[in-house]
Design a protein around this nucleic acid. Sequence first.
DNA 1: ATAGTAATTAGCGGTCAAGCTAATTATGAA
DNA 2: TTCATAATTAGCTTGACCGCTAATTACTAT
Lengths: 101, 101
Amino acid sequence: MATSVFNALGHPLRRKVMMVLRKGPKTSGDLAGMFDASWPTVSRHLNVLKEADLITAERKGTSIVYRANTSVLEDAAAAILALVGRDDGDDRDDDMKEAAE
Amino acid sequence: MATSVFNALGHPLRRKVMMVLRKGPKTSGDLAGMFDASWPTVSRHLNVLKEADLITAERKGTSIVYRANTSVLEDAAAAILALVGRDDGDDRDDDMKEAAE
DNA sequence: ATAGTAATTAGCGGTCAAGCTAATTATGAA
DNA sequence: TTCATAATTAGCTTGACCGCTAATTACTAT
């Protein structure tokens, strides 16, 4: 869960998409036109963001409108802050060997 | 810069290392013993975190002590919050086609 | 049905991340 | 020096990611 969010944000173009989207919804074509990458490439980046639940897609006639899902971004920020100091205890202890205390 | 931080946090084991390290410094051996992964594997994960400046390494006799670099985590959280709403204007507009307004 | 536009999916080549074992460096002790 | 321990680096395989072009799906309009 957190993994997919961080990985999604781990690409500059995808962060830029989030920056654009937080100002308002945009269609795939709008976004594809904003970057140097080809349309299919942008489309796949959008899919990565969607899989991470960072954006939502809604068909609007012939276009598909994308919107930022700010609550997930807030969750991600909270997860980092948990790493910093305050223990909000996310992150399951899988593949941990023992109690690690 | 932000890319390396997000990618570093994009692996569960590395987030767990950060969770452990924020409670206090640990040697590579300590950390290697906590996870199911082999020692070299853990070592490389530590290196990824170090490259992202999320941790620091200091030789202490025969061991190497790792410490969390909380300020970088705070920066990462700030970067996400910038994505959420407040415009602290990180993230350079590389590979952007135009003004995108 | 046909044509046109919007967007994704398929497929390809190249690169990079992740895991392992084995080999190597580095330090400390005898 | 020699031995033992700590940790990384080297080498390998597997699988995922990134970017492209070409092909395909989805919808609108005529």
